[in-house]
Design a protein around this nucleic acid. Structure first.
Lengths: 225, 225
DNA sequence: ACCTGAACACCGTTCAAGT
DNA sequence: ACCTGAACACCGTTCAAGT
């Protein structure tokens, strides 16, 4: 850009991996993943686009680095004896909070799950242990974990990519329904008509509790508690 | 390309919306959404890229048209008196089958759920009706439907984008686990070590049954059946 | 009406400089 | 070592042709 070519003066480092990733994350949070380009990112940093390649091999590495940064924040609160239900609730709450902080990036994570593998491993370990201790067989524990992860990915995706869960989403959906011919979708119309947004939000965690209730049937069957 | 400019001779229509969309779908099925470009699509069709714009306003319309095409195939088998469990199972099976036929497109659908809204409405109507008839309140029926849809989206995403569910996925995952230091992730290692791929596949629907069991607890509570 | 082709404003990335 | 800048092979899309 306006800078002179060549190595910057001693100590005055213009760029660094950390500075690039922080700027990239801010850009993605504010404008979405599709607005992230090497050239745009360089402009934000006041630097020629090709300077970035000295610190990160390619665009995939920029995205990977951002994911690493975001999942570095991700910490399960330690619940030594909270029981498996509390562990699952804590995991779900932590992941949802992360998804709300970085909704644009989370769409990428969910569609490229391999980038989040280390985090999945760490959380998986704790939850599998808790579920095994609660009396589930290895097969049941893995099934339950997969269910929770799949549900959670689907949920955050809905929140992030479809503007669902945002204020006004319910109202908007119900308006769409009402805009259609009055004889279409009577059951949905009746169900949604019987509710309001406040009620739905007060019951936002009911779906998770349904999953926990489903898992609990396995524990009850085998006589555990 | 090699064709002469100008309108083709009478009756010899070179292009049409249907022909373009069919070619686009084939391209996406074979090479992925990111390999779909207007120029590449035109080359496949033996035509100049700009000719496409006579039939579809932009690239978004091409993708929207493909989704329309694919969800046109989507039909819930009519189960007049199968019960809510069978209705949910049929929906899940139909959606999974569709996702397996077009795994690359489904990633787009799941991250842009608004494009599938008409299909969601049609299926939602049937399932809400079935769940209400089974004794769920409006709030419960909507919660259950959202849970099923979120889980399903997360599941097909895992299958489509992460190469999970493909043959060898379990083996690959377990190999990853074993490649890590032996003292890490003991619970996961023990759980996965107790299983094999055939067992997991034989229990592929257990997660869905867990959801159904969770929903059933609501029905039992209110004394229905 | 329907297609072509040049053009514009973008991309990611490589490679040869500059200091 | 670290940055610049030209260049290459791509994009989506507009606009002025051609028949």
């Amino acid at each position: 850009m306006t800078r002179k070519p060549g190595r910057p003066k001693l100590g005055a480092e213009v760029l660094s991996r950390a500075r690039i990733l922080a700027a990239a994350l801010q850009l993605v949070d504010e404008q979405g993943v599709d607005k992230l380009s090497m050239r745009r990112l360089a402009t934000v940093l006041g630097v020629d686009a090709m300077a970035l390649y000295r610190h990160l091999p390619d665009k995939a590495a920029v995205i990977g680095g951002m994911v690493e940064l975001v999942f570095g924040e991700f910490q399960l609160p330690s619940l030594p004896n909270g029981g498996w239900r509390e562990q699952v609730r804590a995991f779900v709450a932590a992941y949802r909070a992360l998804a709300q902080r970085h909704p644009n990036l989370i769409v990428y994570v969910v569609t490229h799950i391999e980038v989040a593998a280390p985090a999945v491993f760490a959380v998986g370990e704790e939850l599998i242990a808790a579920l095994r201790q609660a009396g589930l067989t290895p097969l049941q524990a893995i099934t339950a974990l997969n269910l929770i992860v799949d549900y959670l990915n689907g949920f955050v995706l809905g929140e992030s990519s479809g503007r669902l869960g945002q204020p006004g989403e319910f109202t908007e959906f119900y308006a769409m329904l009402n805009a259609l011919p009055a004889d279409r979708y009577p059951a949905m119309r009746a169900a949604y008509g019987a509710l309001d947004e406040a009620t739905l939000q007060a019951h936002a965690n009911d779906a998770l509790e349904l999953i926990l209730a489903g898992i609990a049937t396995w524990i009850d069957e085998s006589g555990g508690g």
